[in-house]
């Protein structure tokens, strides 16, 4: 089995778990999770070591991270089963201090990159370790000024141990990113801030691996991952409403069948 086939199998399993979680919880934020799962699967299977840190800056994708951590054995069945329920440590946006694998409570956009940059600075200049930090942002999140404050900081301090991935699914809260507040050309912006920037198909595992490998010696890396909101479920793909809607039983079954490639 090739590297990509292997990860595709992981991502499929994660998507199934993810959809089950959302169906049972009657919870939204499905589209945003589906656009991120391939990236999350890659990071947790192939990129992050035990010492590295990952910050989910797009906190509304928390459930896709929960499903990914569950798939790789970090969260148990019992813990995952509490998702979205009363008395859970798995709310719709990550909780503070609940799991070592989720260092930061995010959900308000524009917070994760400054935190990741602080961690990367400490690792590079204070602790002098080779540990790395990855942060996953959404494209809509790049509207936030604090993202660019942190981008300038990371480049200025040559945080070459920092990997920023933009889950660029092209849709944000109330419309297309190009209609709401056009941040394109996104790659040029990160490049001009001093990042070693790549632009890829965010659902192509070979491209993801290539773009996240061999970090530059002096510059932080930014990967603009062009993704599809709702990826893997055709009736959700590219549809704004799947940022918000929960699934009916019929929709859930259709979504599962679609993932399996059944007509």
């Amino acid at each position: 089995m090739t590297f990509a086939d292997d990860l595709r199998r992981d991502a499929l399993a994660i998507r199934k778990t993810f959809l089950g979680m959302h169906y049972r919880a009657k919870a939204g934020h499905i589209g945003t999770g589906l656009s991120a799962i391939d990236i999350l699967a890659f990071l947790h299977k192939s990129w992050l070591t035990k010492e590295d840190a990952f910050i989910l800056s797009k906190g509304h994708g928390a459930s896709s991270l929960y499903a990914t951590l569950h798939h790789f054995g970090v969260l148990s069945d019992e813990v995952l089963a509490t998702y979205y329920k009363d008395d859970t440590l798995l709310p719709a946006h990550p909780a503070a201090g609940a799991f070592a694998a989720i260092p930061a409570a995010t959900g308000s956009l524009g917070h994760g990159l400054p935190i990741a940059a602080g961690m990367a600075y400490a690792r590079k200049y204070l602790d002098r370790t080779s540990q790395r930090v990855a942060a996953l942002l959404s494209d809509g999140e790049c509207n936030e000024g604090s993202v660019w404050e942190a981008a300038a900081f990371a480049a200025h301090h040559h945080l070459a141990n920092l990997l920023v991935i933009i889950d660029a699914n092209g849709l944000q809260g109330f419309g297309k990113t190009t209609d709401v507040l056009d941040m394109e050309p996104m790659a040029d912006k990160w490049k001009s801030f001093g990042f070693d920037t790549r632009e890829i198909d965010g659902h192509d595992f070979d491209q993801i691996r290539e773009a996240c490998s061999d970090l530059d010696a002096t510059r932080p890396r930014c990967v603009i991952a062009r993704t599809v909101k709702g990826n893997g479920v055709r009736f959700m793909e590219g549809k704004l409403e799947w940022h918000y809607l929960p699934m009916s039983e019929a929709q859930f079954n259709e979504a599962l069948a679609d993932l399996e490639g059944k007509p």
Binding site: A104, I115, A122, Y125, S146
Partner: peptide, 26 residues
């Protein structure tokens, strides 16, 4: 040395960076 950090005129980032630093034990 690196334990002094002028982050520039960027208070939001300063507090986020401070949090990230503290998460590593600083």
């Amino acid at each position: 040395g690196p334990r002094f950090l002028n982050v520039g005129v960027a208070e939001q980032n300063m507090m986020g960076v401070a949090a990230g630093l503290a998460m590593t034990g600083a």
